[in-house]
């Protein structure tokens, strides 16, 4: 199967800029927002969204990381996974609107785990979900509130998100 690039650097930046505006719009401003990325690439995206919101709204939006490894339901099916740091910004998540950020939304199992993980850390007023790519094939009643690109795909296809901070290049490929 051939690999093709579906999003390039400019596309990713545009998508994240739009998502940032949508977050501000739906939240009616930047009050009580906390952006939490799911490692690894969700954290990078969360930081970028936080920076974009800061540049348009000139408010500092706390961004952090939420590791969901220990909450996954497939730990017995795969080799032991390393954990990643969870970093909850000062001020916590109680009463806040938490926007979870991940690179690809697929089965929804990661987000299910993330909701459980959040519940052990506090009680947000609301939880929203932002993803760069929604590739379908949901196995849970979960949907994203903010989507960079809907990318219908077959389950055999691999979607690869590369980000400059980690991979040296911004691109999304499918193949």
């Amino acid at each position: 199967m051939s690999v093709r690039t579906v999003l390039q650097h400019a596309d990713i930046t545009r998508a994240l800029t739009r998502i940032s505006h949508e977050i501000l719009e739906s939240n009616r401003g930047s009050d009580d927002l906390v952006i939490l990325g799911i490692p690894t690439r969700g954290v990078t995206l969360a930081n970028r969204i936080s920076a974009i919101i800061e540049s348009v709204d000139s408010a500092v939006i706390p961004a952090g990381a939420l590791d969901v490894t220990m909450y996954r339901d497939d730990l017995a099916q795969n080799p032991t996974r390393p954990t990643r740091p969870t970093d909850i910004p000062h001020g916590g998540i109680d009463g806040k609107t938490v926007v979870l950020v991940d690179d690809v939304l697929y089965s929804g199992r990661t987000i299910r785990a993330a909701l459980d993980a959040l519940g052990d850390l506090g009680r947000p007023r609301a939880v929203r979900l932002a993803v760069l790519v929604d590739r379908g094939h949901r196995e849970f009643p979960i949907r994203a509130d903010f989507v960079g690109k809907n990318l219908p795909s077959s389950m055999e296809e691999r979607i690869n998100v590369r980000l400059e901070e980690i991979d040296g290049v911004d691109e999304v490929t499918i193949g």
């Binding site: 909450y71 740091p85 850390l121």
Partner: peptide, 15 residues
């Protein structure tokens, strides 16, 4: 990461 769990209010994971 387990040390960080020990500093939370809910010091428990479902793993």
């Amino acid at each position: 990461d387990m040390a960080a769990v020990g500093e939370r209010e809910v010091k428990k994971l479902p793993t």
